[in-house]
Design a protein around this nucleic acid. Structure first.
Lengths: 226, 226
DNA sequence: ACGGATATTATTGTCAACAAAAATGCTTGA
DNA sequence: TCAAGCATTTTTGTTGACAATAATATCCGT
């Protein structure tokens, strides 16, 4: 069989996912100008589906376009990154609140086990890298899904997270923060387990606010440049 | 000159705006299945740009698609509509807070004048219809823009508002609410004029929460059906 | 007559050639 | 030598034809 891809999915969907991961992984750097034909060769597609995918990426804010002048990967400055965290604070606070009311007991147990695994990883030095990048994402992913709020999870998972992850490689949290972040995750999960929505909301907002302040500090120190 | 449209804009952009307004205006009803060729005749375009527009609409959540089975206009039930208001409460609260810190004095004056015009309209009986539908939107539009938070205003104006407006014709607020809504708008604008971000946030959240409760009541009364 | 399988049809997905616009580089004149 | 205008070239936007898939209707068997 020549075709290895799943047939239920359309070529444009492929293109969309390929591009999205390529952008998030940094293979296409922020601000980089991208040409259509170049991408076609790179991903073995024709321009039709590719353009469809580009349009979708644009309306999700991952690409910006000037008519007749092509697309480029979105690049945000420090201030805009901080603004993203302000939005996260508001939206994920809501998500945590609703998750506390709506997650099933089984899902909560899964969430706790996820944190158990993260705890093991943080103890190992090289686990930190994973935890800081993907582990944190996994946790917030669970909360967003647990909110049972379709549009909310769609906006978080489909828009905001991708933009934040654009800069995750530069955002490896400072020395003591992984442990602290894990503790904060734990307390949020506990509040959810106790079905205390208000507390979960408060803790989540404080958690994200702390992350924002951490980034702000780094920017002022000149560690993060844009 | 044959072409009356602005040339800087691409055909796909036209299609996108045409479709968007058609959906929001209710010319394409929620749940309605839409065929590509049908739309091509209706808007005088070819399928290429149309498909591009459809893809964008999909990733904004206004259309849903099943592969090889076409698009249909999104239709949400009562619960999902209420969830939308929960999101608005969180996000517009933030917007109001940031607007209080960042709007220029001139913009605030404009906002006040906007409310003056609304006040005149509410006094006239037929003005209510406008105020309930578009006037309310104008107010929230100003706040969103005033937040100076690009992604936040993009998510509010480009995603949420369009979905809410899908149901605006069914959502004409109950008898006494226009006056109350206007009073609430006034107090929010005053808080912004006083540069009191926290208060503006609180008032905005209470305002949207009141609107949500109003809808909830209507659903329970059976006035709103889905 | 009813259910299932198959053939048909209509619709969506894909492609490659064509047209238009913008960016680039070249020529030409001062 | 520099700048402005023009031609070239590259890249994007558009089109219509072609292929593949899913929905529909028909036919046959039980």
């Amino acid at each position: 069989m020549l075709e290895t891809v799943t047939p239920t999915q359309t070529r444009a969907d492929e293109a969309f996912e390929c591009l999205q991961t390529a952008i998030v992984k940094g293979e296409l750097a922020p601000g980089e100008k991208i040409g259509e034909v170049e991408l076609c060769e790179r991903f073995n597609l024709t321009r039709g589906p590719l353009r469809e995918a580009l349009g979708r990426l644009e309306s999700r804010g991952l690409l910006v376009r000037r008519p007749h002048a092509g697309f480029k990967v979105v690049s945000i400055n420090g201030e805009e990154l901080l603004e993203l965290y302000r939005i996260r604070e508001a939206m994920e606070g809501l998500a945590a609140c609703q998750a506390a009311e709506r997650m099933t007991d089984a899902e909560i147990a899964d969430l706790q086990r996820l944190l158990d695994r993260h705890e093991e990883m943080v103890d190992e030095a090289q686990g930190q890298a994973y935890y800081q990048h993907e582990g944190d994402y996994d946790f917030h992913y669970c909360i967003a899904m647990g909110s049972r709020n379709r549009k909310l999870s769609q906006m978080l998972l489909g828009d905001l997270y991708y933009m934040v992850r654009l800069y995750r490689y530069r955002l490896s949290t400072s020395a003591g923060r992984p442990h602290r972040a894990l503790r904060e995750h734990r307390s949020i999960a506990d509040a959810i387990a106790n079905r205390d929505g208000e507390l979960a909301q408060f803790l989540m907002q404080r958690h994200i606010n702390a992350a924002r302040l951490n980034i702000e500090k780094k920017i002022q120190e000149g560690v993060l440049t844009f």
